[in-house]
């Protein structure tokens, strides 16, 4: 208990010092700036955007888009990955194409999807899904290849059909890896969502922070920034807890 307290005050020291120093500096210099704001002003701005509902609306928009994109991207990617992992021939045939498509940065697709779908949630979801597709393919494919080969032999002996093999052998074996893939994807989905909103889409938290900057309201801008950080942190916390709950052995092995 005491040890925990000691590590936690050490961890808290740096942020607290920075915040206090920023407040002192702002008060002493009577800060009036278009790019900086005092911590107190940031807190005030946070509560004002919280009260008028714009923060919650923006958060919901961003989270919904990230969630939908994540489900579609990881779902489609994992499915393709599983198929490629199971059928060697298909994998060999598609490997080169995938390796060539994979390095295309997801932001390069923003103009294409924007042209096809215009602005809005749909465009953002499609970009997020496309961004998550290849990593999910690769992770699922590796996971399927690492399934104990004897299990596959057993399924051959039992003459299981393809659906039965998938649902009884492969899926249970790779479930922990699929969840890890989802966990990585969720964080990335949020990053892509905010990026798309900042770059193009008039929508969500990214647009909120961009508008605050352009309206020269630095306190609001920092409030949005910190809030985006908090959301990212909460999402990863929830997923980590879920992983520990459902796949305890796997979670332990990973943090090693």
């Amino acid at each position: 208990m005491r040890a925990a307290f000691r590590t936690s005050w050490r961890a808290a020291l740096l942020p607290v010092v920075v915040i206090v120093a920023a407040q002192v500096a702002a008060t002493v210099t009577q800060l009036e700036s278009d790019s900086l704001a005092s911590p107190l002003a940031i807190v005030a701005a946070f509560f004002s955007v919280l009260k008028d509902g714009s923060l919650m609306r923006a958060s919901l928009d961003t989270l919904m888009a990230a969630f939908c994109g994540c489900v579609i991207g990881v779902g489609a990617g994992s499915l393709l990955g599983i198929l490629l992992g199971l059928f060697r021939l298909a994998d060999d045939a598609l490997d080169l194409t995938i390796e060539l498509l994979r390095p295309v940065p997801v932001v390069a697709l923003i103009p294409v999807v924007m042209m096809l779908l215009g602005f809005g949630a749909r465009m953002e979801i499609v970009i997020i899904a496309l961004g998550l597709l290849w990593p999910s393919v690769v992770l699922a494919r590796t996971a399927v290849r690492e399934v104990e080969p004897r299990l596959m032999e057993v399924s051959a002996v039992l003459q299981l059909g393809f659906p039965a093999r998938l649902s009884k052998i492969v899926l249970p074996a790779i479930l922990p890896q699929l969840f890890m893939s989802l966990k990585l994807a969720a964080g990335y989905a949020l990053v892509v969502a905010v990026t798309v909103e900042i770059t193009a889409n008039p929508f969500g938290l990214g647009y909120g922070i961009m508008m605050a900057q352009q309206a020269l309201r630095p306190a609001e801008m920092f409030a949005y920034l910190i809030w985006i950080g908090v959301i990212g942190w909460l999402v990863s916390l929830v997923l980590m807890a879920a992983q520990r709950r459902f796949f305890p052995a796997f979670a332990k092995g990973e943090t090693r």
Binding site: T7, A11, D34, V191, Q213, P218, S236
Partner: peptide, 26 residues
């Protein structure tokens, strides 16, 4: 490490693109 690493871990999930408006402001 004990003093600085936790703060860095806290900042890590922040999307880098969210820093763009801040950088523009400066």
């Amino acid at each position: 490490r004990a003093f600085i690493a936790p703060t860095l871990e806290l900042l890590r999930p922040l999307p880098a693109s969210a820093m763009i408006p801040i950088a523009i402001a400066f």
